[in-house]
Amino acid sequence: MFQLLNTFLIGITAGSIYSLMAISMVLVWRSTRVVNFAQAGLAMLSTYFGYEIIHRFDSYWIALPVAMIAGALVAAGIELIFMRLLLKHSSQGAIASIAPIIATLGLLGLIKSIIGYFWGNQDVIIESPLSNVGFTIGTQTLALSPMKTFIIAAVVFMVLVLTFIFQRTNLGLALRASAYAPEISRLAGIKVDLVRTVGWALAGAAGGAAGMLQTANGNGALSPDSLEFSLLLAFGFIAAVIGGLDSLIGAVIGALLLGLVLAFVLTYVGGSLVFITAFVLLLVVLLIRPGGLISQKAGRRA
């Protein structure tokens, strides 16, 4: 019974972090139709900024928003300086649809190298600001610690804020309209280029949050070759694809589903099968419902 509950809690916590990463992939996809593999690098860079803040001010609570803002600024800068030029120059020919994606892979490598140059390739440590020891009920320890509680609450809060922005504000209206039909939006007077940059900035902020939370949830170690971030990218991407790549709600559902499935495989089948499961899940979804699990109904809503 406790094992079931703990497996569920582990899955939800992991899934909520994946959902931030998935959201950031979806935001970029919606605004520029690019699958942004550099997102892992952006999240990592933001987390290093967070590390610098912790180093100086000794506060994770300052570092988290700063990392998000840094992520937003860097992502907006990449869109402004790099992607705009790239999309303009690669608008024709067979390479048009893959060139930007390959370019984001290049960016990923570049960002990791830059991190290595400034911070070195050794692990740096971000201490978890809250206890990672689970609450106890009787003699049993729950897989829910103060830190994990904060992570889940923070993600829920961010998803609610994003949903509010998308559904209830003018900016959200512009974001949704531009994603649906950029040319018509332009005719209707929306500054589509600016909206794209804002989309990237929101994605950067979500990625920064994902990096900070993931690092604090794990062993706190951070390095340019961090496996954690590669997994964050892979699982975030898989979750986004499961959710249809176009929908924020889809990304969250995909991420929670993935987190839960992986947690149950880990507990009841075996750790060596986790990666296989994740990628089999991706392939099965692509084969059976290439538009994602919920693309038909709510897929384009959010």
Binding site: N170, L173, A174, A177, S185, L187, A188, G189, R300
Partner: peptide, 17 residues
């Protein structure tokens, strides 16, 4: 060229930006 996944009101609001 309406935005299919937006409501009618939202579609018109887009024009009022």
């Amino acid at each position: 060229g309406l935005f299919g996944d937006l409501t009618v009101l939202e579609n018109v609001m887009v024009g009022a930006q």
